[in-house]
Design a protein around this nucleic acid. Structure first.
Lengths: 224, 224
DNA sequence: CAACATGTTGACCAGTTGGTCAGAATTTGA
DNA sequence: TCAAATTCTGACCAACTGGTCAACATGTTG
Protein backbone atom coordinates (compact mmCIF):
# COMPACT_ATOMS: atom_id res chain seq x y z
CA UNK A 1 0.00 0.00 0.00
CA UNK A 2 3.05 2.28 0.15
CA UNK A 3 2.76 3.49 -3.40
CA UNK A 4 3.10 7.25 -3.72
CA UNK A 5 6.68 8.28 -4.02
CA UNK A 6 8.15 11.12 -5.99
CA UNK A 7 11.78 12.01 -6.23
CA UNK A 8 11.94 15.44 -7.85
CA UNK A 9 15.61 15.86 -8.50
CA UNK A 10 16.44 12.88 -10.62
CA UNK A 11 20.14 12.50 -11.23
CA UNK A 12 21.83 11.68 -14.46
CA UNK A 13 22.50 7.98 -14.18
CA UNK A 14 20.07 7.19 -11.40
CA UNK A 15 17.28 9.03 -13.19
CA UNK A 16 13.64 7.96 -13.55
CA UNK A 17 13.99 6.00 -10.34
CA UNK A 18 10.58 7.26 -9.32
CA UNK A 19 8.69 5.67 -12.21
CA UNK A 20 10.52 2.42 -11.95
CA UNK A 21 10.06 2.27 -8.20
CA UNK A 22 6.43 3.26 -8.27
CA UNK A 23 5.53 0.63 -10.84
CA UNK A 24 7.66 -2.01 -9.21
CA UNK A 25 5.84 -1.42 -5.95
CA UNK A 26 2.48 -1.46 -7.70
CA UNK A 27 3.31 -4.81 -9.24
CA UNK A 28 4.61 -6.30 -6.02
CA UNK A 29 1.57 -5.10 -4.13
CA UNK A 30 -0.73 -6.67 -6.70
CA UNK A 31 1.32 -9.84 -6.77
CA UNK A 32 1.08 -10.13 -3.01
CA UNK A 33 -2.69 -10.37 -3.24
CA UNK A 34 -2.72 -12.84 -6.10
CA UNK A 35 0.01 -15.13 -4.82
CA UNK A 36 -1.52 -15.15 -1.34
CA UNK A 37 -4.90 -16.24 -2.62
CA UNK A 38 -3.95 -18.50 -5.52
CA UNK A 39 -0.49 -19.77 -4.71
CA UNK A 40 2.38 -19.64 -7.18
CA UNK A 41 0.96 -22.02 -9.75
CA UNK A 42 -2.55 -20.65 -9.55
CA UNK A 43 -1.51 -17.03 -9.89
CA UNK A 44 -1.53 -15.50 -13.38
CA UNK A 45 0.51 -12.58 -14.59
CA UNK A 46 -2.62 -11.25 -16.24
CA UNK A 47 -4.39 -10.99 -12.90
CA UNK A 48 -1.39 -9.31 -11.33
CA UNK A 49 -1.32 -6.85 -14.22
CA UNK A 50 -5.05 -6.15 -13.89
CA UNK A 51 -4.82 -5.41 -10.18
CA UNK A 52 -1.72 -3.29 -10.72
CA UNK A 53 -3.63 -1.51 -13.50
CA UNK A 54 -0.87 -2.04 -16.01
CA UNK A 55 -0.77 -3.89 -19.31
CA UNK A 56 0.66 -7.34 -18.94
CA UNK A 57 3.56 -6.46 -21.22
CA UNK A 58 4.44 -3.59 -18.95
CA UNK A 59 4.63 -5.98 -16.02
CA UNK A 60 7.01 -8.10 -18.04
CA UNK A 61 9.09 -5.03 -18.73
CA UNK A 62 9.90 -4.79 -15.04
CA UNK A 63 9.98 -8.51 -14.26
CA UNK A 64 11.08 -10.98 -16.90
CA UNK A 65 9.14 -13.91 -15.49
CA UNK A 66 6.43 -14.73 -13.00
CA UNK A 67 9.07 -16.40 -10.91
CA UNK A 68 11.05 -13.15 -10.78
CA UNK A 69 8.04 -11.35 -9.35
CA UNK A 70 7.65 -14.11 -6.79
CA UNK A 71 11.33 -13.96 -5.87
CA UNK A 72 11.33 -10.19 -5.40
CA UNK A 73 8.14 -10.41 -3.39
CA UNK A 74 9.52 -13.15 -1.20
CA UNK A 75 12.51 -10.99 -0.35
CA UNK A 76 10.32 -8.11 0.73
CA UNK A 77 8.26 -10.52 2.79
CA UNK A 78 11.15 -12.12 4.59
CA UNK A 79 12.62 -8.82 5.79
CA UNK A 80 10.21 -8.28 8.71
CA UNK A 81 10.40 -11.97 9.56
CA UNK A 82 14.16 -11.70 9.88
CA UNK A 83 13.88 -8.52 11.94
CA UNK A 84 11.56 -10.16 14.44
CA UNK A 85 14.22 -12.84 14.51
CA UNK A 86 16.83 -10.85 16.29
CA UNK A 87 16.09 -9.97 19.88
CA UNK A 88 15.93 -12.81 22.39
CA UNK A 89 19.41 -12.79 23.88
CA UNK A 90 20.86 -14.52 26.93
CA UNK A 91 20.75 -11.37 29.01
CA UNK A 92 17.00 -10.97 28.56
CA UNK A 93 14.55 -12.20 31.09
CA UNK A 94 13.02 -15.25 29.38
CA UNK A 95 9.51 -14.19 30.30
CA UNK A 96 9.91 -10.72 28.83
CA UNK A 97 11.71 -11.97 25.75
CA UNK A 98 9.20 -14.67 24.88
CA UNK A 99 6.19 -12.50 25.68
CA UNK A 100 7.59 -9.76 23.48
CA UNK A 101 8.31 -12.18 20.66
CA UNK A 102 4.79 -13.57 20.74
CA UNK A 103 3.35 -10.08 20.77
CA UNK A 104 5.43 -8.99 17.80
CA UNK A 105 4.54 -12.07 15.79
CA UNK A 106 0.83 -11.58 16.43
CA UNK A 107 1.14 -7.96 15.34
CA UNK A 108 2.90 -9.09 12.18
CA UNK A 109 0.04 -11.49 11.45
CA UNK A 110 -2.37 -8.64 11.78
CA UNK A 111 -0.37 -6.13 9.77
CA UNK A 112 0.80 -8.34 6.94
CA UNK A 113 -1.60 -11.25 6.65
CA UNK A 114 -0.95 -11.63 2.93
CA UNK A 115 2.76 -12.01 3.54
CA UNK A 116 2.05 -14.71 6.08
CA UNK A 117 -0.18 -16.55 3.63
CA UNK A 118 2.41 -16.44 0.87
CA UNK A 119 4.95 -17.85 3.28
CA UNK A 120 2.49 -20.56 4.26
CA UNK A 121 1.89 -21.41 0.61
CA UNK A 122 5.61 -21.62 0.04
CA UNK A 123 6.02 -24.04 2.95
CA UNK A 124 3.08 -26.19 1.86
CA UNK A 125 4.62 -26.48 -1.60
CA UNK A 126 7.77 -27.78 0.03
CA UNK A 127 9.72 -24.50 0.07
CA UNK A 128 11.07 -24.70 -3.50
CA UNK A 129 12.32 -21.13 -3.21
CA UNK A 130 13.08 -20.79 0.49
CA UNK A 131 14.85 -24.09 1.07
CA UNK A 132 18.18 -22.33 1.33
CA UNK A 133 16.79 -19.93 3.88
CA UNK A 134 15.46 -22.84 5.91
CA UNK A 135 18.72 -24.75 5.80
CA UNK A 136 20.90 -21.76 6.61
CA UNK A 137 19.52 -18.68 8.30
CA UNK A 138 16.57 -20.32 10.03
CA UNK A 139 18.45 -23.40 11.12
CA UNK A 140 21.27 -21.31 12.52
CA UNK A 141 18.88 -19.00 14.35
CA UNK A 142 17.17 -21.92 16.02
CA UNK A 143 20.51 -23.37 17.06
CA UNK A 144 21.44 -20.07 18.66
CA UNK A 145 18.16 -19.86 20.49
CA UNK A 146 18.57 -23.44 21.60
CA UNK A 147 21.77 -22.41 23.36
CA UNK A 148 20.07 -19.45 24.99
CA UNK A 149 17.19 -21.57 26.21
CA UNK A 150 19.66 -24.08 27.56
CA UNK A 151 21.47 -21.37 29.50
CA UNK A 152 18.22 -20.00 30.82
CA UNK A 153 17.19 -23.40 32.03
CA UNK A 154 20.60 -24.04 33.60
CA UNK A 155 20.20 -20.82 35.55
CA UNK A 156 16.87 -22.15 36.76
CA UNK A 157 14.96 -19.42 34.98
CA UNK A 158 12.82 -21.88 33.04
CA UNK A 159 12.26 -25.57 32.34
CA UNK A 160 14.46 -27.49 29.95
CA UNK A 161 12.22 -27.53 26.89
CA UNK A 162 13.10 -28.09 23.24
CA UNK A 163 13.65 -24.64 21.77
CA UNK A 164 12.96 -25.97 18.29
CA UNK A 165 9.52 -27.32 19.17
CA UNK A 166 8.83 -24.24 21.28
CA UNK A 167 9.39 -21.89 18.37
CA UNK A 168 7.57 -24.13 15.94
CA UNK A 169 4.53 -23.89 18.17
CA UNK A 170 4.88 -20.14 18.66
CA UNK A 171 5.11 -19.61 14.89
CA UNK A 172 2.12 -21.82 14.26
CA UNK A 173 -0.03 -20.24 16.95
CA UNK A 174 0.72 -16.68 15.92
CA UNK A 175 0.64 -17.10 12.15
CA UNK A 176 -2.62 -19.00 12.22
CA UNK A 177 -4.37 -15.72 12.95
CA UNK A 178 -3.29 -14.53 9.50
CA UNK A 179 -3.35 -17.74 7.48
CA UNK A 180 -6.63 -19.13 8.77
CA UNK A 181 -8.36 -15.80 9.31
CA UNK A 182 -11.67 -16.99 7.80
CA UNK A 183 -11.80 -19.94 10.12
CA UNK A 184 -10.98 -17.79 13.12
CA UNK A 185 -13.56 -15.17 12.29
CA UNK A 186 -16.11 -17.93 12.01
CA UNK A 187 -15.14 -19.56 15.29
CA UNK A 188 -15.10 -16.26 17.15
CA UNK A 189 -18.35 -15.19 15.49
CA UNK A 190 -16.77 -11.98 14.23
CA UNK A 191 -17.25 -10.10 10.99
CA UNK A 192 -13.73 -8.82 11.33
CA UNK A 193 -10.94 -9.39 13.80
CA UNK A 194 -10.39 -6.39 16.06
CA UNK A 195 -7.60 -5.29 18.34
CA UNK A 196 -9.23 -7.07 21.25
CA UNK A 197 -9.14 -10.37 19.40
CA UNK A 198 -5.45 -10.10 18.63
CA UNK A 199 -4.78 -9.04 22.21
CA UNK A 200 -6.69 -12.03 23.54
CA UNK A 201 -4.77 -14.28 21.20
CA UNK A 202 -1.41 -12.86 22.20
CA UNK A 203 -2.31 -13.12 25.86
CA UNK A 204 -3.41 -16.74 25.76
CA UNK A 205 -0.47 -17.80 23.60
CA UNK A 206 1.89 -16.00 25.96
CA UNK A 207 0.34 -17.61 28.99
CA UNK A 208 0.59 -21.05 27.43
CA UNK A 209 4.18 -20.49 26.38
CA UNK A 210 5.37 -19.08 29.70
CA UNK A 211 3.61 -21.62 31.87
CA UNK A 212 4.59 -24.38 29.48
CA UNK A 213 8.18 -23.32 29.98
CA UNK A 214 7.77 -23.08 33.74
CA UNK A 215 8.26 -19.32 33.76
CA UNK A 216 6.39 -17.56 36.56
CA UNK A 217 5.69 -14.03 37.66
CA UNK A 218 4.70 -10.96 35.72
CA UNK A 219 6.40 -10.04 32.53
CA UNK A 220 6.49 -6.83 30.58
CA UNK A 221 6.27 -6.96 26.82
CA UNK A 222 9.57 -6.31 25.09
CA UNK A 223 8.68 -3.86 22.35
CA UNK A 224 11.98 -3.93 20.45
CA UNK B 1 -3.29 -45.21 -0.41
CA UNK B 2 -6.19 -47.60 0.22
CA UNK B 3 -6.52 -48.68 -3.37
CA UNK B 4 -6.94 -52.41 -3.73
CA UNK B 5 -10.52 -53.44 -3.50
CA UNK B 6 -12.27 -56.20 -5.36
CA UNK B 7 -15.87 -57.20 -5.07
CA UNK B 8 -16.15 -60.51 -6.84
CA UNK B 9 -19.86 -61.07 -6.91
CA UNK B 10 -21.16 -58.08 -8.79
CA UNK B 11 -24.92 -57.85 -8.66
CA UNK B 12 -27.26 -56.87 -11.41
CA UNK B 13 -27.97 -53.25 -10.58
CA UNK B 14 -25.05 -52.54 -8.33
CA UNK B 15 -22.68 -54.18 -10.77
CA UNK B 16 -19.20 -53.03 -11.74
CA UNK B 17 -18.98 -51.24 -8.44
CA UNK B 18 -15.49 -52.51 -8.15
CA UNK B 19 -14.25 -50.79 -11.29
CA UNK B 20 -15.99 -47.56 -10.47
CA UNK B 21 -14.75 -47.59 -6.90
CA UNK B 22 -11.22 -48.53 -7.77
CA UNK B 23 -10.89 -45.77 -10.34
CA UNK B 24 -12.63 -43.24 -8.16
CA UNK B 25 -10.20 -43.95 -5.36
CA UNK B 26 -7.26 -43.80 -7.75
CA UNK B 27 -8.38 -40.39 -8.93
CA UNK B 28 -9.01 -39.06 -5.44
CA UNK B 29 -5.66 -40.33 -4.24
CA UNK B 30 -3.91 -38.62 -7.14
CA UNK B 31 -5.94 -35.46 -6.66
CA UNK B 32 -4.94 -35.35 -3.02
CA UNK B 33 -1.31 -35.07 -3.98
CA UNK B 34 -1.84 -32.48 -6.67
CA UNK B 35 -4.26 -30.26 -4.76
CA UNK B 36 -2.05 -30.38 -1.67
CA UNK B 37 0.99 -29.23 -3.55
CA UNK B 38 -0.50 -26.85 -6.09
CA UNK B 39 -3.73 -25.62 -4.57
CA UNK B 40 -7.03 -25.67 -6.39
CA UNK B 41 -6.16 -23.16 -9.10
CA UNK B 42 -2.69 -24.51 -9.65
CA UNK B 43 -3.77 -28.12 -9.95
CA UNK B 44 -4.44 -29.49 -13.43
CA UNK B 45 -6.71 -32.35 -14.35
CA UNK B 46 -3.96 -33.58 -16.65
CA UNK B 47 -1.56 -33.98 -13.75
CA UNK B 48 -4.20 -35.75 -11.69
CA UNK B 49 -4.84 -38.07 -14.62
CA UNK B 50 -1.14 -38.75 -15.07
CA UNK B 51 -0.61 -39.68 -11.43
CA UNK B 52 -3.77 -41.79 -11.45
CA UNK B 53 -2.44 -43.42 -14.63
CA UNK B 54 -5.67 -42.80 -16.51
CA UNK B 55 -6.38 -40.79 -19.64
CA UNK B 56 -7.72 -37.35 -18.83
CA UNK B 57 -11.02 -38.14 -20.52
CA UNK B 58 -11.43 -41.14 -18.27
CA UNK B 59 -11.03 -38.91 -15.24
CA UNK B 60 -13.78 -36.72 -16.64
CA UNK B 61 -15.97 -39.76 -17.04
CA UNK B 62 -16.00 -40.20 -13.26
CA UNK B 63 -15.92 -36.51 -12.31
CA UNK B 64 -17.53 -33.94 -14.58
CA UNK B 65 -15.34 -31.06 -13.42
CA UNK B 66 -12.18 -30.34 -11.50
CA UNK B 67 -14.36 -28.79 -8.83
CA UNK B 68 -16.27 -32.06 -8.47
CA UNK B 69 -13.04 -33.89 -7.77
CA UNK B 70 -12.15 -31.25 -5.21
CA UNK B 71 -15.55 -31.47 -3.57
CA UNK B 72 -15.47 -35.25 -3.30
CA UNK B 73 -11.95 -35.10 -1.95
CA UNK B 74 -12.87 -32.47 0.59
CA UNK B 75 -15.63 -34.69 1.92
CA UNK B 76 -13.27 -37.60 2.41
CA UNK B 77 -10.84 -35.26 4.12
CA UNK B 78 -13.33 -33.76 6.53
CA UNK B 79 -14.52 -37.11 7.85
CA UNK B 80 -11.58 -37.76 10.20
CA UNK B 81 -11.63 -34.11 11.25
CA UNK B 82 -15.24 -34.44 12.28
CA UNK B 83 -14.56 -37.70 14.08
CA UNK B 84 -11.80 -36.16 16.16
CA UNK B 85 -14.36 -33.48 16.89
CA UNK B 86 -16.58 -35.57 19.04
CA UNK B 87 -15.18 -36.60 22.41
CA UNK B 88 -14.49 -33.91 24.97
CA UNK B 89 -17.60 -34.00 27.12
CA UNK B 90 -18.40 -32.41 30.47
CA UNK B 91 -17.92 -35.66 32.33
CA UNK B 92 -14.34 -36.02 31.13
CA UNK B 93 -11.42 -34.90 33.16
CA UNK B 94 -10.25 -31.77 31.34
CA UNK B 95 -6.62 -32.83 31.47
CA UNK B 96 -7.32 -36.23 29.97
CA UNK B 97 -9.69 -34.86 27.37
CA UNK B 98 -7.39 -32.10 26.14
CA UNK B 99 -4.30 -34.29 26.22
CA UNK B 100 -6.14 -36.93 24.21
CA UNK B 101 -7.39 -34.39 21.72
CA UNK B 102 -3.90 -33.00 21.15
CA UNK B 103 -2.52 -36.48 20.73
CA UNK B 104 -5.17 -37.43 18.19
CA UNK B 105 -4.65 -34.25 16.20
CA UNK B 106 -0.89 -34.79 16.08
CA UNK B 107 -1.45 -38.35 14.90
CA UNK B 108 -3.77 -37.08 12.20
CA UNK B 109 -1.09 -34.65 11.02
CA UNK B 110 1.32 -37.52 10.75
CA UNK B 111 -1.04 -39.93 9.07
CA UNK B 112 -2.73 -37.60 6.61
CA UNK B 113 -0.41 -34.67 5.98
CA UNK B 114 -1.79 -34.11 2.48
CA UNK B 115 -5.31 -33.78 3.83
CA UNK B 116 -4.11 -31.21 6.31
CA UNK B 117 -2.41 -29.24 3.55
CA UNK B 118 -5.46 -29.24 1.36
CA UNK B 119 -7.49 -27.96 4.28
CA UNK B 120 -4.87 -25.27 4.88
CA UNK B 121 -5.00 -24.26 1.23
CA UNK B 122 -8.77 -24.05 1.43
CA UNK B 123 -8.58 -21.76 4.46
CA UNK B 124 -5.91 -19.55 2.92
CA UNK B 125 -8.09 -19.11 -0.15
CA UNK B 126 -10.87 -17.89 2.12
CA UNK B 127 -12.77 -21.19 2.40
CA UNK B 128 -14.81 -20.85 -0.82
CA UNK B 129 -15.99 -24.43 -0.45
CA UNK B 130 -15.99 -24.93 3.31
CA UNK B 131 -17.60 -21.67 4.38
CA UNK B 132 -20.84 -23.47 5.23
CA UNK B 133 -18.95 -25.97 7.33
CA UNK B 134 -17.24 -23.14 9.19
CA UNK B 135 -20.45 -21.25 9.82
CA UNK B 136 -22.44 -24.27 10.92
CA UNK B 137 -20.76 -27.44 12.16
CA UNK B 138 -17.54 -25.85 13.34
CA UNK B 139 -19.14 -22.82 14.92
CA UNK B 140 -21.64 -25.00 16.74
CA UNK B 141 -18.95 -27.37 17.95
CA UNK B 142 -16.93 -24.51 19.39
CA UNK B 143 -19.99 -23.13 21.13
CA UNK B 144 -20.59 -26.51 22.74
CA UNK B 145 -17.01 -26.80 23.86
CA UNK B 146 -17.20 -23.26 25.20
CA UNK B 147 -19.98 -24.38 27.51
CA UNK B 148 -18.01 -27.40 28.62
CA UNK B 149 -14.94 -25.33 29.36
CA UNK B 150 -17.10 -22.89 31.29
CA UNK B 151 -18.50 -25.69 33.40
CA UNK B 152 -15.05 -27.12 33.99
CA UNK B 153 -13.78 -23.76 35.15
CA UNK B 154 -16.81 -23.22 37.38
CA UNK B 155 -16.05 -26.51 39.06
CA UNK B 156 -12.54 -25.23 39.65
CA UNK B 157 -11.03 -27.85 37.40
CA UNK B 158 -9.30 -25.29 35.20
CA UNK B 159 -8.88 -21.57 34.55
CA UNK B 160 -11.51 -19.56 32.74
CA UNK B 161 -9.92 -19.39 29.29
CA UNK B 162 -11.50 -18.66 25.92
CA UNK B 163 -12.34 -22.04 24.45
CA UNK B 164 -12.34 -20.55 20.95
CA UNK B 165 -8.79 -19.23 21.19
CA UNK B 166 -7.72 -22.39 22.98
CA UNK B 167 -8.85 -24.63 20.13
CA UNK B 168 -7.53 -22.27 17.48
CA UNK B 169 -4.10 -22.59 19.07
CA UNK B 170 -4.36 -26.36 19.43
CA UNK B 171 -5.35 -26.72 15.78
CA UNK B 172 -2.52 -24.47 14.67
CA UNK B 173 0.11 -26.16 16.80
CA UNK B 174 -0.85 -29.67 15.77
CA UNK B 175 -1.51 -29.08 12.08
CA UNK B 176 1.71 -27.16 11.61
CA UNK B 177 3.56 -30.48 11.82
CA UNK B 178 1.81 -31.50 8.59
CA UNK B 179 1.47 -28.21 6.75
CA UNK B 180 4.96 -26.87 7.41
CA UNK B 181 6.74 -30.21 7.44
CA UNK B 182 9.69 -28.93 5.38
CA UNK B 183 10.29 -26.09 7.77
CA UNK B 184 10.06 -28.38 10.76
CA UNK B 185 12.41 -30.96 9.31
CA UNK B 186 14.87 -28.18 8.66
CA UNK B 187 14.57 -26.70 12.13
CA UNK B 188 14.90 -30.08 13.82
CA UNK B 189 17.72 -31.07 11.50
CA UNK B 190 15.93 -34.23 10.44
CA UNK B 191 15.73 -35.93 7.09
CA UNK B 192 12.34 -37.26 8.05
CA UNK B 193 10.12 -36.82 11.06
CA UNK B 194 10.01 -39.91 13.24
CA UNK B 195 7.71 -41.13 15.98
CA UNK B 196 9.90 -39.47 18.60
CA UNK B 197 9.47 -36.09 16.96
CA UNK B 198 5.70 -36.34 16.91
CA UNK B 199 5.73 -37.56 20.49
CA UNK B 200 7.90 -34.64 21.56
CA UNK B 201 5.56 -32.26 19.75
CA UNK B 202 2.46 -33.75 21.34
CA UNK B 203 4.06 -33.67 24.75
CA UNK B 204 5.14 -30.04 24.60
CA UNK B 205 1.85 -28.88 23.12
CA UNK B 206 -0.01 -30.81 25.81
CA UNK B 207 2.10 -29.32 28.54
CA UNK B 208 1.57 -25.82 27.22
CA UNK B 209 -2.15 -26.36 26.87
CA UNK B 210 -2.67 -27.91 30.29
CA UNK B 211 -0.51 -25.46 32.20
CA UNK B 212 -1.93 -22.60 30.18
CA UNK B 213 -5.35 -23.70 31.33
CA UNK B 214 -4.21 -24.11 34.91
CA UNK B 215 -4.71 -27.87 34.87
CA UNK B 216 -2.33 -29.73 37.15
CA UNK B 217 -1.47 -33.32 37.89
CA UNK B 218 -0.86 -36.28 35.69
CA UNK B 219 -3.16 -37.12 32.83
CA UNK B 220 -3.66 -40.20 30.80
CA UNK B 221 -4.19 -39.87 27.10
CA UNK B 222 -7.74 -40.48 26.01
CA UNK B 223 -7.40 -42.82 23.06
CA UNK B 224 -11.03 -42.66 21.85
C1' DC C 1 -26.63 -65.19 -28.69
C1' DA C 2 -28.39 -60.36 -28.69
C1' DA C 3 -29.26 -56.17 -26.06
C1' DC C 4 -27.81 -53.06 -23.12
C1' DA C 5 -25.37 -50.70 -19.59
C1' DT C 6 -20.87 -49.49 -18.24
C1' DG C 7 -16.31 -48.08 -19.11
C1' DT C 8 -12.44 -46.23 -22.25
C1' DT C 9 -10.25 -43.20 -25.33
C1' DG C 10 -8.12 -40.06 -28.97
C1' DA C 11 -9.39 -36.22 -31.39
C1' DC C 12 -10.92 -31.96 -30.76
C1' DC C 13 -12.36 -27.17 -28.96
C1' DA C 14 -12.33 -22.33 -27.49
C1' DG C 15 -10.08 -19.83 -24.05
C1' DT C 16 -6.02 -18.90 -21.33
C1' DT C 17 -1.22 -19.34 -20.16
C1' DG C 18 3.64 -17.13 -19.65
C1' DG C 19 6.35 -14.76 -22.44
C1' DT C 20 8.33 -12.01 -26.79
C1' DC C 21 8.97 -8.19 -29.68
C1' DA C 22 8.89 -4.27 -32.74
C1' DG C 23 7.81 0.01 -32.59
C1' DA C 24 5.65 4.03 -30.60
C1' DA C 25 5.54 7.46 -26.65
C1' DT C 26 7.88 9.67 -23.10
C1' DT C 27 11.41 11.46 -20.30
C1' DT C 28 15.96 12.74 -19.82
C1' DG C 29 20.42 15.45 -19.83
C1' DA C 30 23.15 18.76 -22.24
C1' DT D 1 16.45 21.72 -29.35
C1' DC D 2 17.54 17.07 -30.02
C1' DA D 3 19.37 12.55 -29.63
C1' DA D 4 19.69 8.96 -26.46
C1' DA D 5 17.67 6.33 -22.81
C1' DT D 6 13.79 4.71 -20.79
C1' DT D 7 9.09 3.35 -20.57
C1' DC D 8 4.99 1.65 -22.62
C1' DT D 9 1.94 -1.43 -25.29
C1' DG D 10 -0.78 -4.04 -28.81
C1' DA D 11 -0.10 -7.84 -31.61
C1' DC D 12 1.48 -12.16 -31.52
C1' DC D 13 3.01 -17.08 -30.24
C1' DA D 14 3.34 -22.00 -28.99
C1' DA D 15 1.93 -24.59 -25.19
C1' DC D 16 -1.48 -25.75 -22.19
C1' DT D 17 -6.13 -25.31 -19.83
C1' DG D 18 -10.77 -27.62 -18.50
C1' DG D 19 -13.97 -29.88 -20.79
C1' DT D 20 -16.77 -32.39 -24.77
C1' DC D 21 -17.87 -36.03 -27.73
C1' DA D 22 -18.45 -39.75 -30.86
C1' DA D 23 -16.71 -44.10 -31.53
C1' DC D 24 -15.22 -48.03 -29.55
C1' DA D 25 -14.40 -51.76 -25.99
C1' DT D 26 -15.84 -54.53 -22.38
C1' DG D 27 -18.75 -56.65 -19.42
C1' DT D 28 -23.45 -58.26 -17.89
C1' DT D 29 -27.85 -60.31 -18.09
C1' DG D 30 -31.69 -62.70 -20.08
Amino acid sequence: MAEKRQIRKSAHRTGNRSVRMRNTLKILSAAEKVFAEKGFDGATTQQIADIAKLPKSNVHYYFKTKRDIYLALMQSIMAPWLESFQAISVDDDPGDALAGYVKRKVMLSRERPLASRIFANEMIRGAPVLSDFLRNELRKWVEEKTQIVKQWSEKGKMDDVSAAHLFIIIWAATQTYADFEVQIKSVLGRQNLETDDYDAAAELITRMVLRGCGIHGDHKVNQT
